[in-house]
Design a protein around this nucleic acid. Sequence first.
DNA 1: TGTAAATATAGACATGCATCTATTTCGATG
DNA 2: CATCGAAATAGATGCATGTCTATATTTACA
Lengths: 138, 138
Amino acid sequence: MKGRRMELLEILECSPPLTREPLDAEQAAGVARVFKALGDPVRLRILSIVASRAGGEVCVCDITGAFELSQPTISHHLKVLKEVGLLTSERRASWVYYRLVPETLGELSALLTLPASGPAGGPARESADLPAAAAASR
Amino acid sequence: MKGRRMELLEILECSPPLTREPLDAEQAAGVARVFKALGDPVRLRILSIVASRAGGEVCVCDITGAFELSQPTISHHLKVLKEVGLLTSERRASWVYYRLVPETLGELSALLTLPASGPAGGPARESADLPAAAAASR
DNA sequence: TGTAAATATAGACATGCATCTATTTCGATG
DNA sequence: CATCGAAATAGATGCATGTCTATATTTACA
């Protein structure tokens, strides 16, 4: 499971900002997994709770208490966030504490970054080549 | 449909960075819709093709040509990206051109931004209050 | 006006996923 | 060692969604 996480961080690190050049299929698949994890309201709230926590750590029991959802459901969402490398967890005594992986969040933010200047342009670049489908079926 | 788009941009504008404070349910719902749209490899690639295009515009026919997917499938993905305010479209003659809405992408990026300093902390803040569930059932 | 080309829409279908209940695992503690 | 509490896992279920084919819509043009 840890291998999976590193894999994704590496893909994020190697993916240029969306505004710079088209993602290839592999990059898109990896990045999409992370965004998909963010594509749920409950997970977003969980992530924001952990990310905004002063000490950096949040006990699962605190998170469970913040929602009207069953404990297994929260556990499931935490697992998803962990699998894509947005959170890590550590067990101490009876409790499990989750904390943010800032690198992953930072890479995502960079991916969505706009080129320096204002809307719709920036210093004109050469046209990025459109990848052609390997073989158009049907 | 345009109302929907503006609605979402407004929600994004009003949502603090995840690292700053927990999102409320409404913010999370809105933001999640946008991230969900990004949570598909094909849509990510489409978005990156449009976002990285020099002129800012891409004809649908060019996008369709870049994938081994049916034309209606591409059309569907474009619609999703448009509904969440990431793209706009304009018809000229027989062709429809899509372009990026940089504001939306920028808001998303800001949402994921890390606090100035390095990993795991930043200047210690007061603990953000955890929202308590209105009524814990079951 | 009628035909062709470019997109969009409709509807069907299979897979994915969020949620639940029930159960298991693991550590603390009597 | 038995039990309790915290969290994770297993399995079921209903709804969401990505894809397709078929059809409609729109524009250009002969």
